[in-house]
Simulated assay, not measured.
Amino acid sequence: MRILVTGASGFVGCHVVTALLEKGHRVTAVARDPQRASQAPWHGRATFLAADIHAPGCAERLDASHFDAVVHLAWPGLPNYAALTHLDRTLPAECRFLGELVRAGVRQLLVSGTCFEYGLASGCLNESTPSQPVTAYGMAKNTLRGYLEILQKSHPFRLQWARLFYMHGRGQNPGSLLPQLDAALAGGQPVFNLSGGEQLRDYLPVEEVATRLVALLEHPGFDGIVNICSGKPISVRRLVEEHVAAVGGSIRFNFGHYPYPDYEPMAFWGDGTRFYHILNDSLRYSEHPLTGKPCL
């Protein structure tokens, strides 16, 4: 397939472009910063196009007729989830850009959504859980999805809305939890400050996230929302303790130093059943995503 990927030099984008190339797809990678793109693992293997997708006329320049599908991963302003720019600047620009791509002929569009669309819902969250975002970022993403669903009524296309949960791995923002922990270990810091650590979250390695997004793209018959998640809750305490053990480090955790975030429930994780149903027998797994007990 001929695939256009936006946000190609970002954390998820780098891994998605690499995974697409490994599957034999022809990729045009779009990013704003040529210097950052030159350091991406896919550099020299994918066709690179430097572009600001929110600039007027960008969609026309990309010429959607050249591609079988678009993977849209770009979104500025993260990880500041509360910034109002997500709503008053990014959202209108996203609607304009993606709307122009669809009107120009894109027939399959995979967009990265977020678990923040679920808001403060607790427990195991499936795709039918009501969307009640409480952050500007979650609200902007959820509104963009609504816009695209309305657009489908006048311009038919496949919309694959992939709700990402938490990720970790190479290329992650240095301000994220595990990169900060690695920096503390490398610097020989004796103590690492955290929140209470009892909150339950859903984590996947970013390489697995990329693999699942590519697999979803390769099933163009699917249209709708799908969670990209592990389906297995893990406490932040256990996550950091296991990470330190895995890298052979030693550090004392100061749990309770920071308050728990007020924009997240104490316990939530994704239900991955729909993703496995989409893939059906195309991928083989050693175990059910919810350890044999899906919460439906």
Rank of each mutant, 00 (worst) to 15 (best):
V226K: 08
V214E: 08
P233Q: 09
G231H: 07
S195N: 13
H219F: 02
K232V: 13
G188L: 05
G197C: 04
G231K: 08
G197K: 09
N193M: 05
E218M: 06
D223I: 01
H219Y: 01
G224H: 11
G231Y: 06
N227A: 05
D223H: 15
Q199M: 14
G197S: 06
C229W: 00
Q189Y: 02
C229V: 03
L217G: 10
G187V: 01
F192H: 09
L216T: 04
R212Y: 14
E198D: 15
N193E: 13
P220G: 11
Q189K: 15
P205Q: 10
F222Y: 15
P190W: 08
N193K: 14
S195A: 13
V214Q: 04
L194W: 13
T211Q: 14
I225P: 12
I228W: 04
L217I: 06
L217E: 06
I228A: 08
D202A: 11
D202T: 07
S235I: 09
G224V: 05
I234C: 10
Y203L: 15
L194R: 12
V191M: 11
N227M: 08
V191N: 12
L204W: 03
G221W: 04
H219K: 10
D202F: 09
E207S: 13
H219V: 13
I225F: 10
C229A: 13
L204I: 10
E218V: 01
V236C: 02
Q189M: 08
L213V: 04
V191L: 13
D223S: 15
A215E: 14
I228E: 06
F192C: 02
G221T: 12
V209R: 01
R212D: 11
R201Y: 10
D202C: 10
Q199E: 15
L200N: 08
F192N: 10
V191G: 00
S235D: 09
E218P: 02
V191A: 05
G221R: 11
R212I: 05
Y203G: 02
C229H: 00
F192K: 07
G221I: 02
L213A: 03
E208C: 02
L213D: 00
G197I: 05
R212K: 12
I228C: 06
E208D: 12
P205T: 08
S235F: 06
N227D: 07
G221F: 09
I234S: 03
R201N: 08
G187F: 00
L216G: 12
H219G: 01
D223N: 15
A215P: 01
Y203N: 04
G221K: 07
G224F: 11
K232I: 10
L200A: 15
F192L: 01
F222N: 07
L213Q: 06
Q199G: 12
L213I: 07
V206W: 00
G221H: 12
P233I: 03
H219A: 14
V226F: 06
A215S: 14
E198P: 03
G187N: 10
I225S: 08
L200T: 06
Q199R: 14
P233W: 09
A210H: 03
A210S: 08
I228R: 04
P220S: 10
L194A: 12
L216S: 11
N227P: 11
E218C: 04
E208R: 13
D202M: 12
G187W: 02
F222I: 12
